[in-house]
């Protein structure tokens, strides 16, 4: 088994959740969000950096994040994203759903499989 295969490919909905979660901490540009997700999952989650941007666009179109151009720490022009009020609600909703789903999946799989 290659080490890559152990990293989980992201389902679409999950990426949105992770982005929202990352932004809950504060304003970030796309590059920062990508690094933050990789970092906080201790490298377990694999994302193509590119897939992040359509996701951000989707979130913006839904009114959950808003964006504006600014300057990054190392003096690069970057587009900064932050959560809107609706985005905060959406995060709570999605996080809740996700927890319930993972619980349910764990219950279905049962102790023997998750242990083995």
């Amino acid at each position: 088994m290659s080490p890559k295969a152990e990293r989980a490919a992201l389902l679409q909905g999950t990426l949105d959740l992770l982005v929202l979660r990352t932004l809950a901490v504060g304003k970030h540009h796309g590059h920062g969000i990508a690094l933050a997700i990789q970092h906080s999952s201790q490298g377990a989650l694999l994302i193509d950096h590119g897939s992040l941007y359509p996701a951000l666009q989707r979130l913006e179109a839904s009114g959950w994040v808003r964006a504006e151009w600014g300057v990054s720490d190392n003096n690069r022009r970057a587009r900064f994203y932050e959560l809107t009020a609706a985005g905060k609600k959406q995060l709570a909703r999605e996080a809740d759903e996700w927890r319930r789903l993972s619980q349910a999946v764990a219950m279905v799989l049962g102790p023997e499989l998750s242990g083995g």
Partner: peptide, 28 residues
């Protein structure tokens, strides 16, 4: 806000700039 977005969608160029900015930061 959403109506505004719908009326004035973001340009392809703006999006390309953001991608460029990402690549530059990752290269850095």
């Amino acid at each position: 806000h959403r109506i505004w977005q719908w009326l004035r969608p973001r340009s392809n160029e703006d999006f390309a700039n953001e991608v460029e900015s990402h690549l530059a930061m990752e290269t850095d």
